[in-house]
């Protein structure tokens, strides 16, 4: 989603992006002239007339589970977005009985919050698990 028109989106896809990935962009490139939608999401920069790098995770019920907003010169980490989606999917599948601690990724230990876990996380989880090897 950006303030560019759908015509410019087509040109960007056809002349640059499709050459990077050797196919068309596999998701809709939305147009938000005037930043109306960007304003609703709180990421429209009125002064520059553009949308900042806002990224929102919306669950199957339409609930916002998380977001990140960056100023224009720094790009996002796509892997981190995917990791977060996987973590929210795990929590949802467990109906909230499981939680993913800092640094979790698929295959790493999850926690089951309970009265017994209070004050005992140190037995279940080590700080090294917050980091990649």
């Amino acid at each position: 989603m950006s303030v560019d028109s759908v015509f410019v989106h087509k040109m960007w896809n056809d002349h640059e992006l499709s050459k990077m990935i050797e196919k068309d962009i596999p998701f809709p490139m939305c147009s938000d002239p005037g930043g109306t939608i960007g304003t609703m999401y709180g990421i429209y920069d009125e002064e520059g007339g553009v949308e900042t790098r806002g990224r929102f995770i919306i669950d199957p019920d339409g609930i916002v589970q998380g977001y990140e907003v960056l100023t224009p010169p720094v790009g996002r980490n796509v892997e981190e977005s995917i990791r977060q989606v996987k973590a929210f999917q795990l929590v949802r599948a467990s109906k909230g009985t499981e939680a993913t601690p800092s640094g979790w990724k698929p295959g790493k230990k999850v926690l089951k919050p309970s009265p017994g876990l209070v004050g005992n996380v140190w037995k279940e989880w080590k700080v090294t698990e917050a980091f990649d090897e």
Partner: peptide, 26 residues
Amino acid sequence: FVNVDLSEYKGKWVLLCFYPGDFTFV
């Protein structure tokens, strides 16, 4: 060219990304 309505994505996970403009560098 299509119209996208967020409500059509109920039941799916959505990653909604805003960015400053087409043909920018990062």
